[in-house]
Design a protein around this nucleic acid. Structure first.
Length: 964
RNA sequence: GGGCGGUUAGCUCAGCUGGUCAGAGCGCCUGCCUUACAAGCAGGAGGUCGCAGGUUCGAGCCCUGCACUGCCCACCA
């Protein structure tokens, strides 16, 4: 491409751009620039400013990034999540909202601790050797060095987040807030400590919540063990899947109505191998039909047994330690691993002849979701949140609030709306059956529980400031609780803590006033309960006491952490397999991005993000969207080339770069700085201008309306499809090709007009595509304005939008007719085997207004279908090379032998299709019930379809006859 | 055990409140290096919408059952 000298001063249209789009350099440059320019940082608006914003029809759009683990590496799920959030945030920002996207990372207690422990292990060390303090310091070191790499990846992917507000869940500020949250709940009597049976991971050596246990069906065995009845020859046979726990048995339970065992209730048994005497008890929980109908009761090692134990006031005997090895209570088995103990117990029972039948048995076994170790139910002292307890004076429990926040009230209003809606049900189902939340973890990395145990009186002191004495007896012999909090406790508080909760000195904070509740949460269903539910519980609970911006008490709808929740799909591999490291099928987004470009990957994810189904990520799709990016790039090249040419010839200049953004009406931003109909003649005549111009502007505004609508509904796939179709299908395939006629024309006014429309539509299309393909559009947008851009970035330009979309229905209908004529001619040429390059005369039979349309736009047909001459005729053309539609017949005149057989086959198929259509419409039209009940427009439509089919069938039959 | 999804062209998926919706991309076939783009252009082939009933004037779309498949929840040892 020629450059420089010939170009008028300051036009800057000379940018030389390569033939193929190369994402790498472009992306890196802009990613860095956006961060450097602090483009997406948001200053907290004052209440007055918020008022003004809303008055102008805009709003705040606040969205919290689900904080990735500090240890995290970006995976496809993140990328999908971030793409969706970025599209929405960029879109809202361009629409004129204050759009704040807040990033941060989660300390992720157990995950991070594991990571560092593994590293230590590689050095032959353990955390125990280091000691708590040194270990925690080591984790901090680790985080300083490697933590947050995932956020750097986000930067590279151009996520439009406010980096100035980045947080880490163990930041000083957030730690204070977490502590405040804990203390308040404790003071309200909603946190308690006690010995209960919890899920224990023997590898992680900590309690984990129910949610952190994954159940897996596994083939196991059901062993029957015979317990001798004391003072009788009888045996009571129990069935168990876990024989080793029998060492901790304290009873055997049967159903009170079970005739088989009624006589044994109250009797005592001799516990084999141990010798302990244990009672036979009756409990309705026992299912007589399962196993032998008698169940051994081991309160310290099974949740059900624990409950039975409580009911019957039985002792609980732990026979294992925290590593799932047998302890001293297990006597001879002490020191054995649980599975070794099982083996030995079975052998010994066998030897004593106490082992009964052994059956195959499938049961669901709980595993630690973190490390896969089989979870051991374990009796231990933990901290819990009483989610169902209603403190004195409070109107509701935490769970009740969290239910009310999602459930529709009598008027049908919901404080939080889920998309897709069915997650509401899943959420409510869970919340309605929720148990107390175990929040203590026996880890070192995390928020240490702010409780101190007194050695003197044994009481607990919970305090905001580290106490020096026991609050109960004044003793100085106090030590802090060693447990830390479940990582979800702190992340559950994020929607309030990131905005400065707790407000110093009561009241509220400017950030809470402006940004709370946030607008939307975008996340996967895998953390629906872990995180989403916890945020709702804690947000609703704590924000009850924070006044609204105007000082009034918050209603439920103002206490929720977000107004909407959009749950997206999971990204799977091309074979729909869940991606996992162990399977080795993880698709690394960074690799894919390097290969195809960020924009192409974003577009792929957006276009595949349809609600309800998981995404089977397909590289083939990405390849297609890389081609799309290249298409846009080359359309730009074409336009730039022509602008340059035009400028050089006309020595003119483009004035639209003087666009004054402060005066732009964001409710009508489809064409920025261009006349509403740039296709019209400048002389003020009534002529609306050439069809193609009117058409493409209509398509543009129609697409803009549809894209905005799709985004309102989180239909990223639809929006992406619309944009793709518009840019490639309408703009490139048709409009650009037609515009070439004008651009090649000697008529400079005609050229100028085409140039104007081309530029206007292209610029709008870039803005419309920008949230989806931020890099490519940014690059081209700057190239477009060449130093005279009205803003620093396309990202702050108005999004194509109009409050009153007025599609040019007429122009679209006319254009569709032309397209149909052109396509028919092309197809007929193919039938005849006309060489690509040859121009051929065509005969067209078309009546009425349609004839005028074709006549007025002859040049378009001749150019796009390579036609040398158009003759209008009044009769249906006979002979070969004919194509017919209900509106017209067209014949390509060309004397070449046609492939009679192929033509006959085509026509026969065509006829069969038509006959099917005709038959079905005839059947319906012949049905009086249909005519009576179907709405008129359906009947009319069918009649037209019927007569069209009839018409074409006649023609096709005739054509077949001619073929002989 | 309970609940929720999915089953539409060879592949990956759209198809919004039942009627102009049987569609897209990739792949495949044919012809073109037409001066924006071969990561392209043009023209095609390809589906009894998982199966069986039902509701309706009319059913991928609603109902029932079944089959296959994926997922979530769950204290039957």
């Amino acid at each position: 491409m020629e450059t420089d000298s010939a170009t008028p001063e300051g036009s800057g249209w000379s940018r030389e751009i390569p033939k193929a789009y190369d994402p790498a350099t472009v992306e890196e440059r802009w990613a860095a620039a956006w961060v450097k320019e602090r483009l997406f940082e948001v200053r907290t608006p004052t209440p007055a400013e918020v008022e003004e914003l809303r008055g102008a029809g805009h709003d705040l759009f606040t969205i919290l990034l689900p904080p990735p683990n500090v240890t995290g590496r970006l995976h496809m799920g993140h990328m999908l999540n971030q793409t969706e959030m970025d599209i929405l945030t960029r879109w809202r920002r361009m629409r004129g909202d204050i759009a704040l996207w807040l990033p941060g990372t989660d300390h992720a207690g157990i995950a991070t601790q594991m990571m560092v422990e593994r590293q230590l292990a590689a050095e032959g060390k353990s955390r125990q050797q280091l000691g708590r303090e040194a270990f925690v310091e080591r984790v901090w070191d680790w985080r300083r060095h490697y933590g947050g790499a995932i956020l750097d990846q986000m930067k590279r992917l151009g996520a439009s987040v406010d980096w100035s507000r980045e947080y880490f869940t163990m930041d000083e500020r957030l730690s204070v807030a977490v502590r405040e949250g804990f203390v308040r709940l404790y003071e309200q009597g909603l946190i308690y400590r006690g010995a209960y049976i919890v899920n224990w991971c023997p590898r992680c050596q900590t309690a984990i919540s129910d949610l952190e246990v994954t159940h897996e069906e596994q083939k196991g065995k059901l062993w029957e063990i015979r317990y001798p009845v004391i003072g009788s020859d009888e045996f009571l046979t129990v069935a168990t899947t876990r024989p080793e726990t029998m060492l901790g048995d304290v009873a055997v339970a049967v159903h009170p109505l079970d005739e088989r065992y009624r006589h044994l209730v109250g009797k005592r048994l001799r516990l084999p191998l141990v010798g302990r005497e244990i009672p036979v008890i009756a409990d309705e929980w026992v299912k007589s039909e399962f196993g032998t109908g008698a169940v051994k009761v081991t309160p310290a090692h099974d949740a059900n047994d624990f409950a039975i134990g409580q009911r019957h006031k039985l002792p609980a005997i732990s026979v294992m330690d925290e590593t799932a090895h047998m302890n001293a209570e297990a006597g001879a088995y002490a020191g054995l691993d649980r599975y070794a103990a099982r083996k030995k117990v079975l052998e010994d029972l066998e030897a004593e002849g106490l082992l009964g039948a052994v059956r195959e048995h499938v049961n669901a076994i709980g595993k630690c979701s973190r490390c896969g170790t089989v979870v051991e139910p374990r009796l231990s002292t933990q901290w819990f949140i009483a989610v169902n307890k209603r403190p004195e004076g409070a109107g509701a429990s935490i769970a009740e609030l969290a239910i009310a926040a999602v459930k529709a009230d009598e008027a049908g209003n919901k404080a939080i709306r889920f998309t897709p809606e069915n997650y509401e049900k899943i959420y409510l189902e869970w919340m309605n059956n929720i148990y107390d939340w175990c929040i203590s973890r026996q880890l070192w990395w995390g928020h240490r529980i702010p409780a101190w145990h007194c050695a003197a009186c044994g009481e607990i002191t919970v305090a905001r400031q580290d106490p020096s004495r026991c609050a109960h007896c004044g003793s100085g012999e106090i030590t802090q609780e060693t447990d830390v909090l479940d990582t979800w406790f702190s992340s559950g508080l994020l929607p309030v803590t990131v905005f400065g909760w707790p407000p110093p000195g009561g009241g509220s904070t400017p950030d809470l006033n402006a940004f709370y509740p946030t607008s939307l949460l975008v996340t996967g269903f895998d953390i629906l309960f872990f995180w989403v539910a916890r945020m709702i519980m804690l947000g609703c609970w704590f924000m009850q006491d924070v006044p609204a911006a105007d000082g009034s008490k918050r209603g439920l709808a103002e206490t929720v952490p977000f107004r909407e929740v959009y749950i997206h799909a999971l990204v799977r591999d091309a074979e729909r397999q869940k991606m996992s490291k162990t399977k080795g099928n993880v698709i690394d987004p960074v690799e894919i991005v390097e290969k195809y470009g960020t924009d192409a990957v974003r577009f792929t994810l957006a276009s595949m993000a349809s609600p309800g189904t998981d995404i089977a990520f397909s590289e083939a799709r990405t390849e297609g969207y890389r081609a799309f990016a290249n298409k846009i790039w080359n359309a730009a090249r074409f336009i730039f080339m022509n602008v340059e040419k035009w400028l050089a010839e006309s020595n003119g200049h483009l004035t639209f770069t003087s666009l004054d953004l402060s005066r732009v009406d964001r409710r009508n931003t489809v064409l920025l700085g261009f006349p509403a109909n740039p296709g019209a003649r400048a002389n003020g005549s009534a002529d609306r201008g050439p069809l193609e111009h009117r058409w493409i502007i209509s398509r543009l505004s129609g697409t803009a309306a549809a894209v905005n609508g799709a985004l309102e509904d989180y239909r990223f796939d639809e929006a992406a499809g619309l944009l793709y179709q518009f840019f490639w299908g309408d703009f490139c395939d048709w409009y650009l090709e037609i515009a070439k006629l004008s651009l090649d024309s000697a008529d400079s006014a005609r050229r100028a007009r085409a140039m104007l429309v081309l530029l206007a539509v292209f610029e709008s299309a870039l803005r419309m595509l920008s949230p989806f393909m931020p890099f490519l559009t940014e690059e081209l947008w700057h190239a477009y304005y060449q130093g005279h851009a009205p803003a620093k970035s396309i990202a702050v330009m108005p999004y194509p939008y109009t409050e009153n979309p007025a599609p040019g229905r007429e122009a679209e209908a006319e254009m569709e007719l032309l397209q149909s004529v052109i396509t028919s001619v092309r197809a007929a040429r193919k039938d005849l085997g006309v060489e690509e390059k040859a121009s051929v005369p065509v005969r067209v039979r078309v009546a009425g207004g349609a004839r005028a349309v074709v006549n007025d736009n002859q040049s378009i047909v001749t150019r796009l279908a390579r036609v040398s001459r158009i003759d209008f005729i009044d009769e249906t053309p006979q002979g070969s090379g004919v194509r017919s539609t209900p509106q017209f017949d067209v014949q390509v005149v060309y004397e070449k032998q046609i492939d009679v057989a192929a033509e006959r086959e085509r026509l026969t198929k065509e006829l069969a299709k038509l006959e099917k259509v005709a038959a079905s419409s005839e059947r319906q039209l012949g049905n009086p019930a249909f005519l009576a009940k179907a709405p008129p427009h359906i009947v009319e439509g069918l009649k037209k379809q019927q007569s069209d089919a009839q018409l074409l069938m006649d023609k096709t039959r005739k054509a077949l006859e001619e073929l002989g």
